[in-house]
Amino acid sequence: MKVAVYGQNYLKESTQKAFEILLKILLENKADIFVETDFLKQQNGTIQSNSAIRTFENLDKSYGLLISIGGDGTILRAITYVRDLDIPIVGINTGRLGFLATVQTDAIEIAIPEILKGDYKISERSLLSVSTSPINSDIEHTNFALNEVALSRKNTTSMITVETHLNDEYLTSYWADGLILSTPTGSTGYSLSCGGPVIAPDANNFALTPIAPHNLSARPLIIPDSTVVTLRVDGREDQFLMSLDSRIATLPNTTTVTIKKADFVIKMVERLDETFLDTLRKKLLWGEDRRN
């Protein structure tokens, strides 16, 4: 199998350890190993000179798997390589919580051989597709997000107003620090920290979550993922920030932002004994109540 390996752009001891274990397993299983160019440059000379390891700067459909080493943020960067190529992604967690990167370092030697044999299941994750009017070149080529699209204030402590339309029907104007449109995958991220709900990955919904709203009645809103969301920003400054997962662009207030469900999905690899509810209990410590 042709396997791509992607890692975070700064090397931690835990990431180095995980990569060395992974490399050993991949070599033992005779995988064709391709490591992202910048990530390989951070490795020691012995690894860099190993003739069994090649590099990639872009992916194509010939790859059978992408393995991400880091946290959920590393996976969010990895999807910009995968895009709509239909390549399954495995997340090895050397970060913190890890809702997406669920394979722990001590499980690599068991999990990776299973996955290479095809003993896994796929969780299809929907994405958000973004367009702006006028077109903004900063997001034109990576105009999608797995977690969320967030509009927020820039260079000011004052609120902004986010005028919101759903399928061309006016909803409301949020007076807030910003507004988050989250996928089910992103519901355990930024949206959750702003009071948004947790959404199961296979639910056909998105969540609108205001950031520190001054509208006292403003609450997170669940909408069908078939909804087209149109947003316009006003405020004391002439610009605002738009983030697509970890990528940020500065846009003028004259911009209209249109967001809808992307026409492709990201395939996350899950072990056969792994479930979303089990991940929730572990990561959010829902099972730690003494009464349980």
Rank of each mutant, 00 (worst) to 15 (best):
Lys261Ser: 07
Ile199Pro: 01
Ile47Arg: 01
Phe206Asp: 00
Tyr190Ser: 15
Ile135Asp: 04
Leu97Arg: 15
Ser129Phe: 12
Leu280Arg: 06
Ile47Gly: 04
Thr142Phe: 15
Thr227Trp: 05
Ala78His: 04
Leu100Gly: 03
Arg281Lys: 15
Phe99Ile: 07
Leu146Ile: 03
Ile135Gln: 08
Ser193Val: 04
Gly178Tyr: 15
Pro220Val: 08
Met268Cys: 10
Asn93Ser: 10
Ser158Leu: 08
Arg291His: 11
Ser137Cys: 03
Phe276Ser: 02
Thr37Asn: 15
Ala203Gln: 01
Val269Trp: 15
Ser129Glu: 13
Leu59Gly: 14
Ala203Cys: 04
Thr255Tyr: 04
Thr132Asp: 03
Lys121Tyr: 11
Glu13Met: 02
Asn215Gln: 11
Leu166Glu: 00
Ser49Val: 15
Leu85Trp: 03
Asp263Arg: 10
Asn136Cys: 09
Gln43Arg: 06
Phe34Arg: 14
Glu140Ala: 02
Asn58Val: 14
Pro224His: 00
Arg96Trp: 05
Asn143Phe: 12
Val90Gln: 10
Thr255Gln: 06
Lys61Cys: 13
Val233Asp: 14
Glu148Leu: 01
Leu85Ile: 04
Val90Lys: 05
Arg125Ser: 01
Ile21His: 10
Val233Thr: 11
His165Asp: 10
Leu128Pro: 01
Ile248Met: 05
Val257Ile: 14
Leu171Met: 11
Phe264Ile: 11
Lys61Met: 10
Val35Gln: 09
Leu66Asn: 05
Ile139Met: 03
Asn50Ala: 13
Thr74Tyr: 03
Thr185Lys: 02
Ser14Gly: 01
Gly287Arg: 10
Ile92Asp: 09
Ile110His: 12
Tyr190Trp: 13
